[in-house]
């Protein structure tokens, strides 16, 4: 059964995210107020063929931990859509 898996990959919270910082500066320049911080990561969508939702998640977890995210600098969150 096909599952769509959404994976969010973000820089670890303790790390400086220069990209987010630059965008934060641009938001301030725009005059938009109320935004305290910007952090930028990646969103990855996988099409997974698996028997169950749990299996789809397992495959995605393997891909995420082996290649899609680097645990030294990033964390990931996985969401499976039926």
């Amino acid at each position: 059964m096909p599952y769509t898996v959404q994976i969010k990959v973000m820089p670890l919270t303790e790390l400086l995210d220069p990209q987010g910082k630059a965008v934060m500066g641009a938001i301030e320049n725009l005059g938009i107020t109320g935004i305290g911080d910007v952090r930028i990561g990646k969103h990855i969508t996988l099409q997974v063929n698996a028997d169950t939702e749990a299996d789809a998640k397992k495959v995605a977890e393997e891909a995420a931990s082996k290649i899609l995210a680097n645990p030294v600098m990033e964390y990931f969150e996985i969401e499976v859509e039926a």
């Binding site: 820089p11 790390l15 220069p18 910082k21 630059a22 680097n70 030294v72 600098m73």
Partner: peptide, 17 residues
């Protein structure tokens, strides 16, 4: 080498972007 775990750590975007 860092991605291969032959060396520890990681190389991140330069702090000045």
């Amino acid at each position: 080498l860092c991605e291969s775990h032959l060396l520890p750590g990681a190389l991140l975007a330069n702090s000045n972007q």
